[in-house]
Design a protein around this nucleic acid. Structure first.
Lengths: 140, 140
DNA sequence: TTTCGTGCAAATGGTTTGCACATGG
DNA sequence: CCATGTGCAAACCATTTGCACGAAA
């Protein structure tokens, strides 16, 4: 359900299996969508010495290997999440900052429309939609 | 068709009308969607001494006044564009980096769906959709 | 052993802040 | 005049890079 086949994938490319790489991948799975800094914290709780630089380099690698992706949820840092099974897009509330996920099905019609009319291949896993969530919209 | 009512809006708030504020607003209208840095360049061509700091502060102000908004088009800097008339969303190609606009109508069904099912009020002008554009997708 | 990965420190790029001077009202 | 704006320089924060040491194969 997690830890895809990191060892094999790495070996297949002649890359090395290291504790850091395993830990970062685990953290991405655990945290869902997390920034490099958040992942750094998570990893540090297990292995104190790991440097933030390594987090960045490892995320780049894992993304290259197709094991994780990142999305830009408004403001600063991108957030990373595991690739695979559960493709999902994000709804971001600009008032309270809450992030929720939506199933790709919701975007399917839009994706099809864009593909037909413009030949644009929508990357659903990368979609972040901004607006006001129910709680903020109703209350405020 | 441009230069809304900057002077009045400012006066209404007891703020001052300055050359810089006019220039930044004009630049936003001219450039469409531009990063702070691009706006800085544009403004400098007219008034050489304007500092990048002022661009940032002015953009924040103009956004606060409801005259401009910003969108995060993937990577680094946000891009600013005038608010009003032509609300539009963006399509960003992750291969070639091209940015194109789509009419809000395309997103209307999605927006309605989200509103009904989740009470989420989609901010269409803020939407950036990532994927592969026709040129890159077909060719590659 | 040999190459790849990591930690560390410094460089970078974008954005923000503090402060004194300039200027609009 | 007086308060707000601006320019400048320095501070910041996230991310990247260079280099020498440490570790996987």
């Amino acid at each position: 359900m997690s830890e895809t086949s990191l060892p094999e994938i790495l070996r297949a490319r002649g890359l090395r299996l290291t504790a850091q790489r395993q830990l970062v991948l685990e953290a991405v799975h655990e945290l869902g969508h997390a920034t490099p800094e958040q992942l750094h914290h998570a990893v540090r709780e297990v292995a104190a010495g790991v440097n933030i630089t390594t987090i960045y380099r490892t995320l780049e690698l894992l993304e290259d290997l197709g094991l994780v992706t990142h999305t830009h949820l408004s403001h600063g840092s991108p957030t990373y999440h595991p690739v695979g099974e559960d493709q999902h897009a994000h709804l971001v509330c600009r008032d309270c900052g809450a992030v929720s996920e939506i199933e790709p099905a919701v975007l399917a019609p839009l994706a099809n429309g864009l593909a037909e009319e413009r030949g644009f291949q929508l990357d659903i896993g990368h979609v972040a939609l901004f607006g006001t969530c129910g709680d903020c919209g109703g209350a405020k």
